[in-house]
């Protein structure tokens, strides 16, 4: 699979404080990768280094396999929106995009209208940027990213400040860009449930270090938290479980329910064990964590 972004031992220090510890990261073509971390984890610093806004203290960045000056040139194949998009407040959407169109050498003027249509701002193109709502500003930021038909988008908090409708629109737009135009996306957001609906890969960052890197399938698998059973005889079931697994952790709850916190991967065996020994299993459920809970367990669980 082609690698779009690759960092090697990328490090950023501010006043002798390591914000990003030597970090190796790669983004492969076609992925929608979510970078997840608490405030101050180093997400924005990492994005800003990718965007060239911050100079790395150490390490190297490659885009499309290219480094150095060639990598800087390769930025033209990427679209960055880091935090709030900046535009000239007194310019209209069209004027703002025209400024960047000229700057990036996009030949066709009609491209401005095309990208405004993609982000659903075509009918607001004459409005001045300062009169735009937060959601419209974010969408114009994405339009700017799309102006030069990029292969990859790097979006830091693209749904920041948006209402529910705006969030759904951006999600649909990003999915469409990924599926129809094969645009690779690296995205961060504080709204983890939204990322779960969007991303195909999840990278967790804490104190400038990647602490976990999972595909959507891995996350689903890893976030299986516990088995919940409803049996006719909880005492007998508990006895059987204790005998079969020395270190098993389970709780007996009202209404004939048992929850098992470990040996989750042995769910099938547990089920058979109970049935073979005459315990009637009325309900067997594998309970999964959502991304938010997984994140909290990963980040805050480690802190405890």
């Amino acid at each position: 699979m082609d690698t779009i972004i690759q960092t090697y031992q990328l490090k950023k220090t501010f006043k002798e404080v390591e914000i990003i510890k030597p970090l190796d990261f790669s983004l492969r073509k076609g992925e929608i990768c979510a970078l997840i971390g608490k405030n101050g984890a180093g997400k924005s610093t990492f994005f800003k280094m990718l965007a060239g806004q911050l100079m790395p203290t150490e390490g190297d960045i490659h885009f499309f396999g290219k480094s150095g000056k060639e990598m800087t040139q390769s930025r033209k194949r990427m679209g960055f929106m880091i935090e709030t998009p900046e535009f000239f407040p007194d310019f209209t959407a069209t004027q703002n995009l025209e400024y960047f169109r000229i700057q990036r050498g996009v030949v066709e003027k009609k491209r401005i209208y095309e990208v405004l249509q993609i982000v659903d701002l075509a009918n607001q193109q004459k409005k001045r940027f300062k009169d735009y709502s937060m959601g419209m500003k974010q969408r114009l930021g994405i339009a700017l990213c799309l102006l030069s038909s990029p292969d990859c988008l790097v979006l830091d908090e693209p749904i920041n400040g948006l209402d529910a409708k705006g969030i759904i629109e951006i999600r649909k737009l990003l999915l469409k860009l990924n599926q129809e135009k094969q645009i690779t996306i690296l995205v961060s957001s504080h709204i983890l449930t939204e990322l779960q609906l969007l991303a195909t890969r999840f990278v967790f960052i804490k104190n400038g270090v990647i602490v976990d890197d999972l595909s959507k399938e891995d996350l689903d698998e890893k976030s299986k938290k516990q088995i919940q059973l409803k049996v006719d005889d909880t005492a007998k079931a508990a006895q059987l479980l204790g005998r079969a697994y020395n270190d098993i952790q389970f709780k007996i709850l009202p209404n004939h329910i048992i929850t098992i916190q470990n040996h989750v991967e042995a769910g099938g065996e547990i089920n058979r064990l109970l049935i073979d020994n005459g315990v009637l299993v009325m309900e067997f459920r594998m309970e999964a964590l959502n991304l938010e809970e997984y994140f909290l367990e990963l980040v805050e669980g480690n802190e405890k």
Binding site: T72, R75, G79, F80, I82, E86, R104, S148
Partner: peptide, 15 residues
């Protein structure tokens, strides 16, 4: 205040 837009240009590969 237009200097704040420099970051956009840098992001898009202008040296």
């Amino acid at each position: 205040k237009d200097t704040s837009l420099i970051k956009q240009s840098v992001s898009f590969g202008v040296s």
